[in-house]
Protein backbone atom coordinates (compact mmCIF):
# COMPACT_ATOMS: atom_id res chain seq x y z
CA UNK A 1 0.00 0.00 0.00
CA UNK A 2 2.63 2.50 1.13
CA UNK A 3 6.34 2.25 0.48
CA UNK A 4 8.83 4.77 1.77
CA UNK A 5 12.27 4.45 0.28
CA UNK A 6 15.22 6.35 1.76
CA UNK A 7 13.00 9.32 2.57
CA UNK A 8 14.59 12.40 4.09
CA UNK A 9 13.31 15.86 4.91
CA UNK A 10 16.05 18.38 5.53
CA UNK A 11 15.51 21.89 6.89
CA UNK A 12 18.09 24.61 7.02
CA UNK A 13 17.69 26.94 9.94
CA UNK A 14 20.26 29.57 10.84
CA UNK A 15 22.97 27.82 8.83
CA UNK A 16 22.28 24.52 10.57
CA UNK A 17 21.09 21.43 8.76
CA UNK A 18 18.24 19.68 10.53
CA UNK A 19 16.96 16.31 9.36
CA UNK A 20 13.32 16.11 10.47
CA UNK A 21 13.09 12.77 8.70
CA UNK A 22 16.33 10.91 8.11
CA UNK A 23 16.62 8.14 5.49
CA UNK A 24 13.43 6.36 6.42
CA UNK A 25 12.50 3.20 4.55
CA UNK A 26 9.24 1.59 5.55
CA UNK A 27 6.55 -0.63 4.05
CA UNK A 28 3.06 -0.09 5.42
CA UNK A 29 0.67 -2.97 4.74
CA UNK A 30 -2.78 -2.41 3.22
CA UNK A 31 -5.91 -2.91 5.28
CA UNK A 32 -4.14 -2.81 8.64
CA UNK A 33 -3.62 -0.25 11.38
CA UNK A 34 -0.04 0.94 11.56
CA UNK A 35 1.17 3.16 14.36
CA UNK A 36 4.17 5.43 14.21
CA UNK A 37 5.20 6.20 17.76
CA UNK A 38 7.76 8.74 18.83
CA UNK A 39 8.27 11.64 21.15
CA UNK A 40 7.52 15.16 19.96
CA UNK A 41 10.17 16.31 17.52
CA UNK A 42 10.93 12.75 16.41
CA UNK A 43 9.75 13.57 12.88
CA UNK A 44 6.55 11.53 12.85
CA UNK A 45 4.40 14.57 12.06
CA UNK A 46 6.53 15.42 9.02
CA UNK A 47 6.53 11.77 7.98
CA UNK A 48 2.73 11.39 8.02
CA UNK A 49 2.33 14.64 6.05
CA UNK A 50 4.49 13.23 3.28
CA UNK A 51 1.92 10.49 2.77
CA UNK A 52 -0.59 13.02 1.39
CA UNK A 53 1.93 15.46 -0.04
CA UNK A 54 1.44 18.22 2.55
CA UNK A 55 5.20 17.92 2.97
CA UNK A 56 7.59 17.07 0.15
CA UNK A 57 10.60 14.88 0.83
CA UNK A 58 14.03 16.42 0.21
CA UNK A 59 15.10 13.05 -1.17
CA UNK A 60 13.75 9.52 -1.51
CA UNK A 61 10.37 8.38 -2.72
CA UNK A 62 6.96 8.09 -1.08
CA UNK A 63 4.73 5.66 -2.94
CA UNK A 64 1.06 5.56 -1.93
CA UNK A 65 -1.10 3.15 -3.95
CA UNK A 66 1.51 3.27 -6.69
CA UNK A 67 1.62 7.08 -6.90
CA UNK A 68 4.75 9.03 -6.03
CA UNK A 69 3.37 11.61 -3.59
CA UNK A 70 6.66 13.48 -3.53
CA UNK A 71 6.44 14.31 -7.22
CA UNK A 72 2.67 14.63 -7.68
CA UNK A 73 1.43 18.22 -7.92
CA UNK A 74 -1.50 20.33 -9.03
CA UNK A 75 -4.65 18.54 -10.13
CA UNK A 76 -3.06 15.10 -9.84
CA UNK A 77 -2.12 15.68 -6.21
CA UNK A 78 -5.58 17.08 -5.37
CA UNK A 79 -7.21 14.05 -6.97
CA UNK A 80 -4.96 11.67 -5.04
CA UNK A 81 -5.83 13.48 -1.79
CA UNK A 82 -9.53 12.75 -2.26
CA UNK A 83 -8.68 9.12 -1.57
CA UNK A 84 -6.57 9.89 1.50
CA UNK A 85 -8.54 11.02 4.54
CA UNK A 86 -6.88 12.82 7.43
CA UNK A 87 -7.90 13.64 10.99
CA UNK A 88 -6.11 15.98 13.32
CA UNK A 89 -5.27 16.52 16.98
CA UNK A 90 -7.23 19.77 17.06
CA UNK A 91 -9.95 18.50 14.72
CA UNK A 92 -9.55 21.43 12.27
CA UNK A 93 -13.26 21.84 11.60
CA UNK A 94 -14.71 24.97 10.04
CA UNK A 95 -16.45 26.69 12.94
CA UNK A 96 -18.69 28.60 10.55
CA UNK A 97 -20.30 25.36 9.38
CA UNK A 98 -22.54 22.86 11.15
CA UNK A 99 -21.45 19.23 11.64
CA UNK A 100 -23.44 18.34 8.55
CA UNK A 101 -21.92 21.12 6.45
CA UNK A 102 -18.42 20.27 7.64
CA UNK A 103 -18.82 16.73 6.34
CA UNK A 104 -20.41 18.02 3.14
CA UNK A 105 -17.35 20.24 2.62
CA UNK A 106 -15.21 17.22 1.68
CA UNK A 107 -17.87 16.18 -0.85
CA UNK A 108 -18.07 19.72 -2.27
CA UNK A 109 -14.34 19.62 -2.91
CA UNK A 110 -14.81 16.31 -4.73
CA UNK A 111 -17.53 17.91 -6.87
CA UNK A 112 -20.36 15.63 -5.70
CA UNK A 113 -23.82 16.99 -6.66
CA UNK A 114 -25.92 18.45 -3.84
CA UNK A 115 -28.62 15.76 -3.79
CA UNK A 116 -26.04 13.01 -3.52
CA UNK A 117 -24.16 14.92 -0.84
CA UNK A 118 -27.17 15.06 1.43
CA UNK A 119 -27.69 11.30 1.56
CA UNK A 120 -23.99 10.57 1.91
CA UNK A 121 -23.61 13.03 4.82
CA UNK A 122 -26.49 11.40 6.73
CA UNK A 123 -24.91 8.00 6.23
CA UNK A 124 -21.49 9.20 7.42
CA UNK A 125 -22.81 10.94 10.51
CA UNK A 126 -24.69 7.76 11.40
CA UNK A 127 -21.53 5.72 10.91
CA UNK A 128 -19.64 7.83 13.46
CA UNK A 129 -22.57 7.93 15.89
CA UNK A 130 -23.59 11.58 15.61
CA UNK A 131 -27.31 11.21 14.91
CA UNK A 132 -29.19 14.13 16.38
CA UNK A 133 -26.18 16.48 16.40
CA UNK A 134 -26.13 17.14 12.64
CA UNK A 135 -27.07 20.81 12.95
CA UNK A 136 -24.75 21.67 15.80
CA UNK A 137 -21.83 24.00 15.22
CA UNK A 138 -18.38 22.75 16.32
CA UNK A 139 -18.47 25.21 19.24
CA UNK A 140 -21.49 23.32 20.58
CA UNK A 141 -19.82 19.89 20.39
CA UNK A 142 -17.53 18.10 22.85
CA UNK A 143 -13.99 17.12 21.85
CA UNK A 144 -15.00 13.54 21.13
CA UNK A 145 -17.95 14.70 19.02
CA UNK A 146 -15.72 17.10 17.08
CA UNK A 147 -13.33 14.25 16.32
CA UNK A 148 -16.29 12.17 15.14
CA UNK A 149 -17.18 14.95 12.71
CA UNK A 150 -13.52 14.96 11.64
CA UNK A 151 -13.65 11.21 11.04
CA UNK A 152 -16.91 11.45 9.06
CA UNK A 153 -15.36 14.22 6.96
CA UNK A 154 -12.20 12.18 6.38
CA UNK A 155 -14.26 9.18 5.25
CA UNK A 156 -16.58 11.21 3.01
CA UNK A 157 -14.94 10.36 -0.30
CA UNK A 158 -14.47 6.66 0.58
CA UNK A 159 -10.70 6.87 0.98
CA UNK A 160 -8.36 3.88 0.82
CA UNK A 161 -6.13 5.39 3.45
CA UNK A 162 -6.85 7.27 6.67
CA UNK A 163 -4.10 9.33 8.29
CA UNK A 164 -4.47 10.15 11.99
CA UNK A 165 -2.32 12.97 13.31
CA UNK A 166 -2.32 12.57 17.11
CA UNK A 167 -6.07 12.19 16.76
CA UNK A 168 -6.71 11.43 20.42
CA UNK A 169 -4.02 13.54 22.09
CA UNK A 170 -6.44 16.36 22.92
CA UNK A 171 -9.06 14.01 24.39
CA UNK A 172 -9.58 12.61 27.88
CA UNK A 173 -8.78 8.90 28.42
CA UNK A 174 -12.36 7.68 28.20
CA UNK A 175 -13.09 9.62 25.00
CA UNK A 176 -9.73 8.48 23.63
CA UNK A 177 -10.79 4.85 23.97
CA UNK A 178 -14.16 5.54 22.32
CA UNK A 179 -12.48 7.20 19.34
CA UNK A 180 -9.85 4.44 19.10
CA UNK A 181 -12.58 1.79 19.11
CA UNK A 182 -14.41 3.70 16.39
CA UNK A 183 -11.24 3.79 14.27
CA UNK A 184 -10.70 0.09 14.87
CA UNK A 185 -14.27 -0.66 13.84
CA UNK A 186 -13.93 1.48 10.70
CA UNK A 187 -10.74 -0.35 9.81
CA UNK A 188 -12.55 -3.69 10.07
CA UNK A 189 -15.79 -2.64 8.41
CA UNK A 190 -14.41 -0.61 5.54
CA UNK A 191 -11.12 -2.43 5.16
CA UNK A 192 -9.20 0.79 4.75
CA UNK A 193 -5.58 1.27 5.74
CA UNK A 194 -4.98 3.42 8.80
CA UNK A 195 -1.70 5.12 9.60
CA UNK A 196 -1.57 6.98 12.88
CA UNK A 197 1.09 8.90 14.69
CA UNK A 198 1.10 9.17 18.44
CA UNK A 199 3.31 9.59 21.46
CA UNK A 200 1.04 7.38 23.52
CA UNK A 201 1.84 3.71 23.88
CA UNK A 202 -1.74 3.05 24.88
CA UNK A 203 -2.95 4.02 21.39
CA UNK A 204 -0.57 1.57 19.71
CA UNK A 205 -1.47 -1.26 22.11
CA UNK A 206 -5.17 -0.75 21.70
CA UNK A 207 -5.63 -0.59 17.94
CA UNK A 208 -2.40 -1.10 15.99
CA UNK A 209 -1.33 -4.25 14.18
CA UNK A 210 2.01 -2.83 13.13
CA UNK A 211 4.24 -0.29 14.77
CA UNK A 212 7.25 1.78 13.77
CA UNK A 213 9.23 3.51 16.49
CA UNK A 214 10.79 6.85 15.54
CA UNK A 215 13.61 8.69 17.20
CA UNK A 216 15.48 11.74 15.91
CA UNK A 217 14.06 11.41 12.39
CA UNK A 218 14.80 7.72 12.04
CA UNK A 219 12.68 4.60 12.27
CA UNK A 220 14.69 2.62 14.81
CA UNK A 221 12.43 -0.39 15.16
CA UNK A 222 9.39 -1.73 13.35
CA UNK A 223 7.23 -4.81 12.90
CA UNK A 224 4.15 -6.48 14.36
CA UNK A 225 3.07 -4.85 17.62
CA UNK A 226 3.14 -8.20 19.41
CA UNK A 227 6.70 -8.93 18.25
CA UNK A 228 8.19 -5.50 18.74
CA UNK A 229 6.85 -5.16 22.25
CA UNK A 230 7.61 -8.72 23.25
CA UNK A 231 11.28 -8.23 22.46
CA UNK A 232 12.11 -4.53 22.27
CA UNK A 233 15.60 -3.96 20.91
CA UNK A 234 15.97 -0.22 21.27
CA UNK A 235 16.13 1.79 24.51
CA UNK A 236 13.46 4.17 23.17
CA UNK A 237 11.07 1.25 22.58
CA UNK A 238 11.67 0.04 26.14
CA UNK A 239 10.93 3.53 27.37
CA UNK A 240 7.58 3.49 25.57
CA UNK A 241 6.81 0.07 27.02
CA UNK A 242 7.55 1.39 30.49
CA UNK A 243 5.03 4.10 29.70
CA UNK A 244 2.29 1.42 29.58
CA UNK A 245 3.81 -0.25 32.62
CA UNK A 246 2.83 2.88 34.49
CA UNK A 247 -0.69 2.37 33.18
CA UNK A 248 -0.79 -1.16 34.63
CA UNK A 249 1.25 -3.12 32.08
CA UNK A 250 4.18 -5.32 32.93
CA UNK A 251 7.60 -3.82 33.45
CA UNK A 252 10.37 -6.43 32.85
CA UNK A 253 12.71 -4.31 34.94
CA UNK A 254 10.70 -5.28 38.02
CA UNK A 255 11.09 -9.06 37.44
CA UNK A 256 13.61 -11.19 39.33
CA UNK A 257 16.99 -10.86 37.61
CA UNK A 258 17.44 -14.62 37.02
CA UNK A 259 15.25 -17.13 35.20
CA UNK A 260 12.97 -17.06 32.17
CA UNK A 261 10.07 -14.67 31.62
CA UNK A 262 7.03 -15.61 29.56
CA UNK A 263 4.05 -13.55 28.53
CA UNK A 264 0.97 -15.63 27.82
CA UNK A 265 -2.00 -14.14 26.05
CA UNK A 266 -5.36 -15.71 25.45
CA UNK A 267 -8.60 -14.51 23.93
CA UNK A 268 -11.25 -13.62 26.49
CA UNK A 269 -13.64 -16.06 24.84
CA UNK A 270 -12.78 -19.54 26.04
CA UNK A 271 -10.26 -17.82 28.28
CA UNK A 272 -11.27 -19.90 31.25
CA UNK A 273 -10.30 -23.16 29.55
CA UNK A 274 -7.08 -21.61 28.34
CA UNK A 275 -6.23 -20.20 31.75
CA UNK A 276 -6.68 -23.62 33.29
CA UNK A 277 -4.21 -24.92 30.69
CA UNK A 278 -1.55 -23.03 32.56
CA UNK A 279 -2.09 -24.82 35.89
CA UNK A 280 -2.43 -28.08 33.98
CA UNK A 281 0.98 -27.48 32.40
CA UNK A 282 2.53 -26.64 35.74
CA UNK A 283 1.33 -29.96 37.18
CA UNK A 284 2.08 -32.07 34.11
CA UNK A 285 5.55 -30.74 33.47
CA UNK A 286 6.41 -30.52 37.16
CA UNK A 287 7.30 -26.81 36.87
CA UNK A 288 8.04 -24.21 39.42
CA UNK A 289 6.40 -21.05 38.07
CA UNK A 290 5.57 -17.71 39.64
CA UNK A 291 2.78 -15.50 38.37
CA UNK A 292 4.10 -11.95 38.22
CA UNK A 293 1.00 -10.43 36.76
CA UNK A 294 -2.37 -11.35 35.31
CA UNK A 295 -4.84 -8.91 33.78
CA UNK A 296 -7.36 -8.23 31.03
CA UNK A 297 -6.34 -5.91 28.20
CA UNK A 298 -8.07 -4.37 25.19
CA UNK A 299 -6.60 -5.34 21.81
CA UNK A 300 -7.76 -4.91 18.19
CA UNK A 301 -9.40 -8.38 18.40
CA UNK A 302 -11.31 -7.66 21.60
CA UNK A 303 -10.49 -8.08 25.27
CA UNK A 304 -7.90 -10.68 26.06
CA UNK A 305 -6.14 -12.04 29.11
CA UNK A 306 -2.47 -11.54 29.75
CA UNK A 307 -0.32 -13.49 32.19
CA UNK A 308 3.33 -12.84 32.89
CA UNK A 309 5.07 -15.85 34.42
CA UNK A 310 8.55 -16.24 35.84
CA UNK A 311 10.36 -19.62 35.65
CA UNK A 312 13.37 -19.85 38.00
CA UNK A 313 14.69 -22.67 35.81
CA UNK A 314 15.09 -21.22 32.30
CA UNK A 315 15.43 -24.66 30.66
CA UNK A 316 11.71 -25.19 31.37
CA UNK A 317 10.66 -22.22 29.23
CA UNK A 318 10.65 -24.04 25.87
CA UNK A 319 8.67 -27.12 26.99
CA UNK A 320 6.07 -24.88 28.67
CA UNK A 321 5.81 -22.65 25.61
CA UNK A 322 5.27 -25.70 23.39
CA UNK A 323 2.61 -27.15 25.70
CA UNK A 324 0.63 -23.90 25.89
CA UNK A 325 0.99 -23.00 22.22
CA UNK A 326 -0.58 -26.36 21.37
CA UNK A 327 -3.66 -25.22 23.38
CA UNK A 328 -4.04 -22.00 21.45
CA UNK A 329 -2.35 -19.69 23.93
CA UNK A 330 -0.05 -17.00 22.61
CA UNK A 331 3.39 -17.25 24.15
CA UNK A 332 6.08 -14.58 24.08
CA UNK A 333 9.33 -15.55 25.68
CA UNK A 334 10.40 -12.20 27.07
CA UNK A 335 13.65 -13.53 28.51
CA UNK A 336 15.20 -16.96 28.25
CA UNK A 337 17.97 -16.79 30.82
Amino acid sequence: MITLDQVSKIYHAGGRRIAAVDEVSLAIPAGRVTGIIGQSGAGKSTLIRMLNGLEKPSSGSVLVAGRDMGRASGAELRKARLKIGMIFQHFNLLWSRTARANVAFALEIAGIPRAERRARVEELLRLVGLEGREDAYPAQLSGGQKQRVGIARALANAPDLLLCDEATSALDPQTTDQILDLLSEINRRLGLTIVLITHEMHVVRRICDHVAVMEAGRVVEEGLVSEVFAAPKQPITRRFIRQTAEEGGFDPALAPPEGALLRLTHAAEGGEAQASAFSEAVLKLGLRANLLQARLIQTPEGPSGEIVAHLPDPSQARPLAGFLAARGIGVDILREA
Binding site: L54, A80, R81, F88, N92, F105, I109, R153, N157
Partner: peptide, 15 residues
Protein backbone atom coordinates in the same frame (compact mmCIF):
# COMPACT_ATOMS: atom_id res chain seq x y z
CA UNK B 1 -8.10 31.89 10.55
CA UNK B 2 -6.76 28.66 12.04
CA UNK B 3 -3.90 27.30 9.92
CA UNK B 4 -5.03 23.79 10.79
CA UNK B 5 -8.29 24.34 8.92
CA UNK B 6 -6.38 25.44 5.84
CA UNK B 7 -4.14 22.39 6.15
CA UNK B 8 -7.23 20.16 6.47
CA UNK B 9 -8.71 21.76 3.33
CA UNK B 10 -5.55 21.06 1.37
CA UNK B 11 -5.46 17.51 2.75
CA UNK B 12 -9.01 17.03 1.42
CA UNK B 13 -7.84 18.02 -2.05
CA UNK B 14 -8.92 21.68 -1.94
CA UNK B 15 -7.04 24.20 -4.10
Amino acid sequence: VDRGVIEATRAMGGG
